[in-house]
Amino acid sequence: MSRVRTRPTRDDTREKLFEAAARVCEEQGIGGASIEDIAAAAGFTRGAFYSNFKSKDELVIAMMEEHVEQSIRRMHELLAEHKTLPDFINALRNMDRSKQDPLGRSPLLHMEMILFVARAEKRRPELAKRLRARRKLIADIVETTAKNSGKNGILNPAWVGAVVLALEDGFRLHRLIDPETPADSFLRAIADLQRAIGIPSS
């Protein structure tokens, strides 16, 4: 008779460490969070941490990589179902945020990680790589939805992608500073841009 597996898999362990790191880093800041605190919050020993990551830096980079990969996958799935820009924006507005990864759920943690990576020159290429991936994702969405809306060729998708990404991060920061900033500010701004370039809202 075969034994039932009771030990967590490597993926399970990494996911628990990501969730624990998100909680600890949000409370203490990435600089103040220790490996011991993160491991304890996940219910693991320090040794379990080091069996998955060589350092806190490696954990942070892995969390960012997971966030970007999940975002790309989720947005492409959404785009496959909602092919025009108005439909896509409405789908984004109604998306279940509780299913997002820790970075997607927490604007504070997102900004904390950007600052943590940007402060050290050796980490910046990793951050830049993820930034370019996010920018390309948005450019692909702009290009596809514009084409499906009959507006192909009127936009520079790469530039619009950069503008949209800057808007997203900007409104995320504004909402952290001023809670009265409307939660849907980013999507409202995108809808305004949509109208400005002549794409109908329905």
Rank of each mutant, 00 (worst) to 15 (best):
L17F: 03
F18S: 07
A20I: 07
A21S: 08
A22I: 12
A22S: 14
A22F: 08
C25P: 07
C25N: 06
C25K: 00
I30C: 03
I30F: 02
A33Q: 03
S34W: 01
I35V: 12
E36L: 01
D37H: 02
D37S: 07
A40E: 13
A42W: 02
A42L: 05
A42S: 07
R46P: 00
R46W: 02
G47I: 03
A48G: 12
K54M: 11
E58G: 10
L59W: 08
V60Q: 01
V60C: 07
V60K: 01
V60A: 07
I61W: 05
I61R: 10
E65L: 11
E65I: 11
E65D: 15
E69F: 07
R74D: 15
M75C: 13
L79N: 06
E81N: 11
E81P: 05
T84F: 13
L85E: 12
P86C: 12
D87S: 14
F88P: 11
A91Q: 06
L92T: 04
R93M: 11
D96G: 12
R97S: 11
S98G: 13
K99S: 09
P102E: 03
L103N: 05
G104L: 06
G104M: 05
R105L: 04
P107H: 08
L109G: 01
H110T: 08
M113I: 12
I114H: 03
I114A: 03
L115F: 11
